[in-house]
Design a protein around this nucleic acid. Structure first.
Lengths: 136, 136
DNA sequence: ATCGGTGCAAAGGTTTTGCAGGCGG
DNA sequence: CCGCCTGCAAAACCTTTGCACCGAT
């Protein structure tokens, strides 16, 4: 792990493989999808362990837990600022470049004073490059 | 109903009361919370019917289905443009004034051309006015 | 050796769905 | 009357958790 914020966490084989496999992909897998991948290397790992490790890794700031309104969470090991677009045609979640517009929200709302914003959640629905091509 | 996009939908007693009760509140209730309210007027209504009607009403554009990453959906009958802030202290979801910044996302991303954004999902985590006061 | 982590399976919470009967338009 | 809608209950889904054993530090 890079970030040692979580001091009492052990780097078990399971946790290491979960993190390694998540870092290999840009597909933003769900816990279950990642479980299927990790199982190829650790056939005896349980889904519960994958959930527990993803929870710990996201609490440590090693990975991102994404909720795009699908009724299940996705995970992302890319910690660089970026957005997510869920393609309404194929269901894929793709990365979208960061534009520092969130700051504007925080600035403008700060002036209003009646509440305090600690984080801005932004994502997009749309159509990815591949599906745009198929539609001509 | 105002919007008659959904032509084959009937205005049953259950659907009407679900919509009326949702319009009476600004608390952004979950399906279950709304069920408890509606049940005072229609004691025999089932939770399944509340879910089915909320689904239909949101498909018709009569209400908004919100997913704020809590693991359950909330519903809102206010169709004016506005944002939502989830208070991390008390859990309440409050309305926040609309700032037309979403347009900027759409404009800037449109120039990139490799994907098409159809909708921008934005919400905030923070602290509401009431909780700010309690904290001094 | 300690005590966090694991596998397993059951339970939890939210939402959907199959079915037979009911009722709105 | 037609066929969408309802109540009921079971099922589907995703996620969490209790427990006894294991293993990383």
């Amino acid at each position: 792990m890079v970030n040692m914020d979580c001091e009492r966490t052990r780097l078990t084989k399971q946790r290491r493989v979960v993190l390694e496999e998540l870092r290999k992909t840009t597909a933003h897998p769900t816990a279950d999808e990642l479980y299927e991948v990790v199982r190829k290397r650790l056939p005896n790992i349980s889904l519960g362990t994958v959930y527990r490790n993803l929870e710990i890794l996201s609490a440590c700031g090693e990975v991102l837990k994404l909720d795009l309104g699908e009724g299940k969470k996705r995970f992302d090991a890319c910690m660089e600022p970026h957005y997510h677009l869920r393609c309404t045609e194929c269901g894929r979640v793709i990365d979208v470049p960061y534009l520092p517009l969130e700051r504007e929200f925080e600035e403008q709302f700060k002036a209003m004073g009646s509440f305090k914003i600690t984080s801005v959640q932004i994502h997009f629905d749309g159509i990815c490059e591949g599906c745009l091509k198929k539609m001509n």
